[in-house]
Design a protein around this nucleic acid. Structure first.
Length: 338
RNA sequence: GGCGCGGUCGCCAAGUGGUAAGGCAAAGGUCUGCAAAACCUUUAUCGGCGGUUCGAUCCCGCCCCGCGCCU
């Protein structure tokens, strides 16, 4: 608490080399959480500029190259000269996972620490943040071969069959996972088979948390109605920016129609429109509705996230940004003195 | 003005003389490697007023509203 920065910082008082421990001690890390369309990127850039930070995207869709407008990747102007990491990591058609994210994110964190830059995570995908901060259990990654087998069994022999298999391997997990929740069942069986142990037991062994960092989580939480309004508007903005053309280009480039990114909100809808099945108005409506549902799920997830400092507005609101700035100053001070 | 059809949750939509399927939306929730995914839970007294009946959303009458046709 002794070598604290000034209590009311302004832009000039926080140059790139603002107070931060980079030797021993904990390295501060900022995570901005909240539902989609809430201004996380804008706030992230603002904070990064103020405190000498760089952005680490934490979003399961923005890792895909070519899917830009609909996934709300920040544009060059929006990035405003601040380096962004963990964007455009893979080509469509490649599976990307929480484990892969963790691996790559840790590498970026190391890099930032070496260069004394403050990591600012903009997180839309709660699972990825948890995977990074809390770690994942020591489980094997996906096995495409095994999955292919399980998937075909699920098709031929129904989900009930898979559930019975799981019950035999791990009754506890089977009780926890719904008999119709295909992806979770398959992952559970995959782990049981690959490790030769029940999933429950594997999980009990614990997770490998991220060590050496002092995260502060700032949450954006505008009123629901305002958020829904903004979502509605954003869909139209995306279209104005050429979203439809982007989708057309992706289709033209031969990306398989069942590659994962086409499941992202709006992409499937717009492709269907291009095929002539639905009107643009219908596709637009479906997209904003899907976005609202998504935002709701995010809200549910982040509500449970521990130790979040919630701010009641959008990240591009100056008052909210100022409040966030204050939180960061306090956090930097605290972690510098610890 | 007349005739016909229809009025069931925010939307679509079944249905029965004994107190109302389902889908979508919404809200709440779950989540340890496809998470913008997947899954779970919750949500109506049937346009209004009378009548018949032990009992009506379902039968009858009147009224209101919508649609179609006719004059």
């Amino acid at each position: 608490m002794s070598t604290a920065p000034k209590p009311t910082p302004s832009l000039e008082q926080h140059p790139a080399d603002s107070p931060r421990k980079s030797g021993q001690g904990l390295v501060p890390l900022i995570a901005i959480v909240g539902p989609t369309a809430t201004g996380k990127s804008a706030l992230g850039v603002w904070l990064a500029r103020r405190f000498g930070g760089e952005i680490m995207a934490c979003d399961s869709t923005q890792v895909y190259r070519g899917f830009d407008i609909g996934t709300a990747k920040p544009t060059p102007e929006e990035r405003d000269g601040v380096p962004h990491h963990l964007l455009d990591l893979v080509d469509p058609g490649f599976p990307f996972t929480a484990g892969e994210y963790r691996f790559r994110a840790i590498a970026v964190l190391e890099d930032l620490r070496r260069r004394s830059r403050l990591p600012v995570l903009t997180v839309g995908t709660g699972l990825y943040l948890r995977a990074l901060l809390e770690g994942l259990a020591d489980t094997p990654g996906r096995s495409e071969e095994l999955r292919a087998r399980l998937e075909s069994q699920a098709d031929k022999l129904t989900l009930q069959y898979l559930h019975r298999v799981l019950r035999r391997l791990d009754p506890e997990a089977a009780a926890r996972i719904g008999s119709r929740d295909r992806p979770k069942m398959i992952r559970a069986i995959e782990i049981c088979l690959l490790t030769g142990r029940p999933l429950t037991e594997v999980h009990q062994a614990g997770r490998a948390r991220l060590e050496g960092y002092a995260p502060i989580k700032i949450g954006l939480q505008p009123p629901r109605a305002a958020l829904y309004e903004r979502i509605e508007r954003r869909v139209h903005t995306m279209l104005d920016r050429g979203w439809l053309e982007e989708v057309a280009g992706l289709v033209r480039s031969g990306i398989s129609r069942d590659s994962k990114p086409f499941d992202f909100i709006g992409y499937g809808e717009l492709r269907t429109h291009l095929e002539g099945t639905v009107t643009l108005a219908e596709a637009t409506k479906a997209s904003s509705q899907a976005t609202r549902r998504y935002a709701k799920r995010q809200v549910t997830w982040f509500r449970k996230e521990p130790l979040v400092h919630w701010l009641p507005g959008f990240g591009d609101d100056p008052a909210i940004a100022a409040a966030a700035e204050r939180l960061v100053v306090g956090h930097l001070r605290a972690s510098a003195s610890s």
